[in-house]
Design a protein around this nucleic acid. Structure first.
Length: 578
DNA sequence: GCCGTTTTCGGCCCGACTGTTTTCAGTCG
């Protein structure tokens, strides 16, 4: 049972209670608990099983929810949740995903028309049964059908990498409109979450600028959902929704703070402001009594007004950042400029699309001091993985290449490496004698993903304790929106890496981002070092490093937590500590 | 249901927009 599954139960309880028209603050408590649990770096199952006292210290988890967490961990179920589901069919929750439908309408639709699912709703709307209900009209019916259509097409959230390829040119387009002063992304895009629901963009402009007219005329716009003076919403051809808000220069910072979120972070900020006799909205910080405007032009001003330093967007999740800010303990988050090399790339020798020379050339262009060539081992036959003989040949080739660099006085170094397979029994796919000749041994699971948690954990821990592995690559094997992570006890794996001085990879490939942000935070807390690598299969993939950096920042990582921020000598020293 | 530098009881974040309405509930971010 992972935290995310426990969180889901509390979110469902919140939704169900809301549909039942329960006390909204009770609803909020469950929703908040779900959020807190999803953001928690420590594994709840381990906490409960080891009877650790952490649970009592977490804000937002009181007696009742504490008991339910214990119940869920011990029995896999929650009685209260089950009872709610007896009263309301489970499919009813999917109705909330239809834009414009909230708990009140779900309740009405269920009670009056017996609607239990999105397909029920679609049928009823097409049969014109909806507008007969109180508070619903023709327009509502139309909008429901439109919203269902959009829901079908967007199929949930977009990966950050994809969202960015659409957002960046749109932002550029907006910047070039007459009268525009500032343009910035906001929302989860600015917080660099691994998936994005929609693109939020803020614009500050001079009076009379025709930003909105130009926005909806953007060639990629498929449909205009709403157009006003301050807020417009469109659907792009790729299916992504984009919102643009236009603001005064004076409230730009407040709006940026507000629309960047997260919601939980903003609530915490506003609660804090309230205690100080202030009110925070997207228009600024105000004195609650006199309504006098105090700040809002920049984000720094807003945070300063509530007695805080500026907090980087990536960690605005109400997961301890406000407390850290208050104690002057905000992390100095890692930056892409801090990196000195890449420790996981492939070449045409296995399944890469670029040659060794091309990879090296691109790494030099990227400003790196070193790169580790880590092709697959023979078990990955589909990638034409290397056997011992071919590894030895590649070592020779790299030695020659490095000599050439020395001759030309370059300080660049190519490290000899491998991405060796961790076989089902936890043994490694190549002879130890050969592996010992390499600078960097990266180990990874590429097969038998369906093992039990116990088996998979033992498999990876065995590789960690082999004494020859430096880095564990993409430690959970997940592909965002495509493949769930395999079952593995991350706390136990991290404990083993700490004990054996093994490094965990943060794989920057935008489909992977593995470790994820929360695991990065846990690794940091446990004192485990991270390597941020691209797993490049082409020279163009080296640029993906920025996605790794985004995730690292979301995981509170600093320069000192990351192996490949170190100059070669220091990095090698750490690798040789084995 | 949670929480406490006013409080262990009585609060709990803020504003815009939409569609339905004659003053507002519901939804959204």
């Amino acid at each position: 049972m992972e935290n995310i599954e426990i969180a889901k139960i509390f979110h469902e309880i919140a939704d169900l209670l809301e549909i039942k028209n329960e006390n909204p603050f009770r609803v909020r408590s469950y929703r908040n608990a779900g959020h807190v649990i999803a953001e928690l770096p420590e594994n709840l199952k381990s906490i409960v099983e080891n009877d650790e006292p952490i649970l009592d210290e977490i804000s937002g988890i009181g007696k009742s929810i504490h008991e339910k967490i214990v119940e869920i961990v011990k029995t896999g179920k929650c009685k209260f949740h089950d009872e709610l589901l007896k009263e309301l069919p489970p499919t009813i929750l999917e109705l909330l995903q239809v834009s414009g439908i909230g708990p009140k309408k779900v309740q009405l639709l269920y009670k009056e028309l017996g609607i239990q699912s999105v397909s029920d709703l679609e049928k009823a709307a097409k049969a014109h049964k909806i507008h007969t209900l109180a508070g619903m009209g023709e327009k509502t019916e139309e909008n429901i059908l439109k919203a269902i259509e959009n829901l079908k097409q967007s199929k949930g959230r977009f990966k950050l990498g994809i969202a960015m390829t659409y957002a960046v040119p749109l932002i550029e387009y907006l910047k070039n409109i007459d009268g525009v002063i500032h343009v910035s992304e906001a929302g989860s895009l600015r917080r660099r979450k691994e998936t994005i629901g929609d693109i939020d963009i803020l614009v500050a402009c001079k009076k009379g600028s025709r930003v909105m007219d130009r926005f909806i005329a953007y060639p990629e716009v498929r449909e205009v959902l709403a157009k006003g003076d301050t807020k417009s919403t469109v659907i792009l051809r790729c299916g992504l929704q984009a919102d643009v808000r236009v603001l005064d220069k004076k409230s730009y910072g407040a709006a940026l703070q507000y629309f960047t979120g997260s919601k939980a972070h903003n609530i915490a900020i506003r609660e804090r402001a309230k205690k100080m006799g202030l009110k925070v909205s997207e228009y600024g910080v105000f004195d609650e009594k006199t309504d006098k405007w105090i700040a809002g032009e920049t984000e720094e001003d807003v945070y300063r007004a509530v007695g805080l330093p500026w907090i980087p967007p990536e960690i605005r999740e109400n997961a301890g950042e406000i407390e850290s800010a208050l104690n002057d303990k905000l992390p100095h988050l890692i930056d892409v400029k801090d990196l000195k090399g890449d420790l996981h790339v492939h070449t045409t020798e296995t399944d890469g699309a670029s040659t060794l020379d091309e990879m090296v050339e691109s790494a030099i262009k990227q400003g790196y001091e070193y790169i580790a060539i880590t092709d697959h081992s023979k078990a990955v036959s589909i990638a034409h993985g290397l056997d011992e003989k071919r590894v030895l040949r590649q070592i020779e080739e790299i030695d020659k290449l490095n000599k050439r660099f020395t001759v030309y006085g370059s300080r660049f170094t190519v490290l000899k490496g491998i991405e060796v397979d961790i076989k089902a029994d936890g043994s490694l796919d190549l002879d130890k004698d050969v592996l010992a000749k390499l600078d960097v041994v990266v180990a990874a699971v590429h097969s038998r993903f369906n093992m039990t948690e116990g088996e998979m954990t033992a498999r990876i821990v065995k590789a960690i304790s082999s004494g020859i592995v430096h880095i564990i690559a993409h430690p959970t094997g997940r592909l965002i929106n495509e493949r769930m992570p395999y079952a593995v006890n991350m706390t136990e794996v991290l404990r083993a890496t700490k004990m054996h001085n093994v490094i965990m990879e943060l794989n920057s490939y935008p489909d992977r981002l593995d470790l994820n942000d929360i695991h990065c935070k846990l690794a940091k807390e446990m004192g485990v070092m991270i390597a941020i690598s691209t797993d490049s299969h082409s020279r163009f993939h080296l640029e993906n490093i920025r996605f790794g950096i985004y995730t690292a920042r979301r995981g509170w990582l600093e320069k000192k937590d990351v192996l490949n921020t170190m100059p070669l000598n220091k990095a090698l020293k750490i690798l040789k500590r084995k």
